[in-house]
Amino acid sequence: MKFTRSSGPYWRPVQDVPAMMRHVLYALAPAAAAHSFFFGPGLWINLCVAGITALATEAIALRLRGAPLQLHLSDGSALVSAALLALCLPPLLPWWVTATGTAFAIGVVKHLYGGLGLNLFNPAMAGYALLLLVFPAHMTNWLPPHVDDLDYQALSLWQTLQFTATGNLPATLGLDAVTGATPLDVLRTELGRMRTLTEIAADPVFGDFGGRGWEWVGNFVTLGGLWLLYRGIIRWQIPAGMLAGVLAGSLLLYLADPQTHASPLFHLYAGGTLLGAFFIATDPVSACVTDRGRLIYGAGCGLVTVAIRSWAAFPDGVAFAVLLMNVLAPLIDRYCRPRVYGTG
């Protein structure tokens, strides 16, 4: 009897790249729901704009590179980048801002470097960084969280759509009336005015330990992250390293001067710390590969995030911290190679 030949191993489980990417998207769903609960429907619009732009850019880039279209379009990696970027963007954002960031992330950061697996930088964070530089004003237009006792004017889906489409709100609404600064921004601005933290923390955007609303979004991000850990899609080293880095860095500053530095818990829940730790810094392509390297890489992301928040003029430090560590990742890996069996 004749049989087909092939090389082994002949058995492997099916946890392939598309499945991994699908799970990342599922894991983001609770956080997205919480986000839109507190900050309105803008996130869904941004997600749509980013998703469509990402797929279109991916298709064009694949075509130009002569790579198999169907295989890579269906791997889900572009959608994950798009979703992560959208989750970092302000909920009220003209569509072309979102589209520019996404197209840059996929077209330049991912595909100019050779496509999936070869990009040096995290596409979502590179896209975010570009938008901060090119559209700084838009990028700080955050919305106040929808919590009962807070004075805010909620935007309807229709009003949000109008703004996204045109960049202008309906004439009856003033941008100033509906937008607010993020807690991180409030902190920076007020610290700049020489106010103490005790005074600043009385601002209604601050909750028990982080920003109001943000605390809840953070909890749901963590939930998704834990699920990814449980499914074995991410491993613990990078999240643990990054959270430890943020906590340790902010604790040191806080202990040095609690009146000019926010508490470690505030930093944990502020901005993109949790999203960064579980979803962004864990992007395997641009991170370290070895276990020890991942701990160091994560810790670096955390420490640099705190440093940027404390001393630089950006709304949040996560994006630049991750990008900086992306550059260092290969170097860190070099020094963290495990000792091969039977050597040295």
Partner: peptide, 23 residues
């Protein structure tokens, strides 16, 4: 046996590093 699946680029997930008995 595992169904034939198209090979994708390495995404540096590190799973192989974790699994390798020779480190």
């Amino acid at each position: 046996i595992a169904p034939a699946a198209p090979e994708m680029p390495c995404i540096r997930c590190g799973d192989c590093v974790q699994a390798c008995p020779a480190r």
